[in-house]
Amino acid sequence: MRLLLFVFAYLLPISFAISQNVIDWNPKYELQDSDFQASRHESGGNISVYAACTVGFGYQMNGYQFMFTKNFNSKVNTTFTRNASYIIAADTISRDKLLKFARAEFDLSELYARKFRQLMFEKKNAFSDPNFYQKLYEQIHVELAARNSQLSLDTNAGLADIRLKEQHEKILAEIDALADFCKECKPKKKKD
């Protein structure tokens, strides 16, 4: 019993620290400068930002459960990892612009998570193979990478703040248009 208590007491802080390192996307939360905790190696006036945003998917169910499951929204996560993210900027103005760019990237990741949820909802049927999502997941990641790259080019990685604001507003409007595909939502069934 003591050993069990010791293991629990030892693992609890580790698990708490790991959970504090990852931020789940939430429409009410905006990334803060303090969320960028990776080592910052500042060098000769270079500026850069890396927001470790991820669209993840995983489920565990038996074949019977899988056959009758259509809504996988809760199985798709958009996360930001604090200790893998950084901002390097010489001044506060540049740093603020890079932070806004990272916020747009995080929202862009959620947009593509919603697109993935929508695709799965539309493509899944009772006789789908349990690995039906793999091609869809790959497709979404290719589209997300291309759009993220274009966002970076169009806004000079956030330094063109007016263009970034326009692009970010467009991303948020697209997220709103896919409201049925939020993580907690239950999409409406199509009426034929």
Rank of each mutant, 00 (worst) to 15 (best):
M1C: 07
L4Q: 09
L5E: 14
V7M: 12
V7A: 12
V7E: 03
F8W: 10
A9G: 14
L11N: 12
L12E: 00
P13V: 11
P13W: 08
I14P: 03
S15N: 09
I18E: 03
I18M: 02
S19R: 15
N21M: 10
V22W: 08
I23W: 07
K28Y: 10
E30V: 13
E30G: 06
Q32T: 11
S34G: 06
D35Y: 02
F36H: 00
Q37W: 01
S39K: 14
H41G: 03
H41M: 10
H41W: 07
S43M: 11
G44Q: 12
I47C: 03
S48L: 08
S48Y: 07
S48H: 04
V49D: 01
Y50T: 06
A51M: 01
A51Y: 01
A51Q: 01
V55D: 00
V55C: 00
G56A: 13
F57M: 02
M61W: 06
Y64N: 12
F66R: 07
M67H: 11
F68M: 09
F72C: 07
N73L: 10
N73V: 10
N73F: 09
S74K: 14
V76A: 12
N77I: 06
T78G: 04
T79I: 10
F80I: 09
R82F: 04
Y86D: 00
I87F: 01
A89K: 01
I93H: 09
S94A: 15
D96Q: 15
K97M: 05
L98I: 00
K100Q: 15
A102G: 05
E105K: 13
F106W: 04
S109P: 00
S109Y: 15
S109K: 09
E110K: 05
A113D: 02
K115V: 06
K115H: 08
F116D: 01
L119R: 15
F121N: 01
E122C: 04
N125L: 03
N125I: 11
N125R: 12
F127C: 00
S128W: 05
S128G: 02
D129S: 15
P130I: 13
P130E: 05
Y133L: 07
Y133T: 10
Q134C: 01
Q134N: 08
L136H: 08
L136K: 00
I140A: 03
H141E: 02
H141S: 03
E143R: 11
E143I: 06
A146F: 07
S149P: 02
S149E: 12
L153S: 12
N156D: 14
G158P: 03
A160L: 12
R163Y: 06
L164T: 11
L164S: 05
E166A: 13
Q167K: 15
H168T: 06
H168F: 14
E169Q: 15
K170P: 02
I171M: 00
A173R: 14
I175M: 01
A177C: 04
L178K: 06
L178M: 06
D180T: 04
C182K: 14
K183A: 11
P187S: 05
K190E: 09
K190V: 10
K190C: 01
K191Y: 11
D192S: 12
